[in-house]
């Protein structure tokens, strides 16, 4: 596999970009993906859905979100940053537990699963 050259943060037009196969992911254990200079954290949930959020942790400044513990808060599927334990909603990127810090959210990418491949909607789509 080779690194994609298209940078989803700066791509001029919205387009679906194939990132990996669903089979490359493990349930409830995140993986990072590199799209140009942007890092995305991918999560496969027990219901088969895949979520994509920033790998960059706004609280610590390190690229570690993909290495956090996946779980739930009420109905919301979540990931807890491995650095200082802030908890984010995987569906919206909203921070559900800021550990007393100011609110900061993760960017969320729309995900398309097709023929066992994971595609992200890149570019300034939203």
């Amino acid at each position: 596999m080779t690194a994609q050259t298209l940078d989803p943060a700066t791509a001029p037009e919205a387009s679906w970009l194939r990132v990996c196969r669903v089979a490359d992911l493990e349930v409830e254990r995140g993986r990072a993906a590199l799209l140009g200079s942007t890092q995305v954290a991918l999560f496969l949930l027990p219901d088969g859905s895949v979520h994509a959020v920033d790998n960059h942790d706004p609280y610590s400044g390190a690229n570690v979100i993909s290495r956090g513990i996946v779980g739930t808060r009420g109905e919301a599927p979540t990931v807890a940053s491995p650095m200082y334990k802030q908890v984010f909603d995987l569906r919206t990127g909203a921070c559900l537990d800021t550990q007393g810090k100011d609110p900061a959210a993760l960017r969320v990418w729309p995900v398309l699963l097709q023929d066992g491949d994971v595609h992200l909607l890149c570019g300034d789509a939203r």
């Binding site: 690194a3 990132v19 493990e26 993986r31 990072a32 993906a33 590199l34 991918l42």
Partner: peptide, 16 residues
């Protein structure tokens, strides 16, 4: 396999 840096670029260091 869990130690790969990126699923689509397994040995590329974190550029930051």
């Amino acid at each position: 396999a869990r130690f790969q840096s990126f699923v689509n670029a397994p040995s590329t260091p974190d550029p930051d």
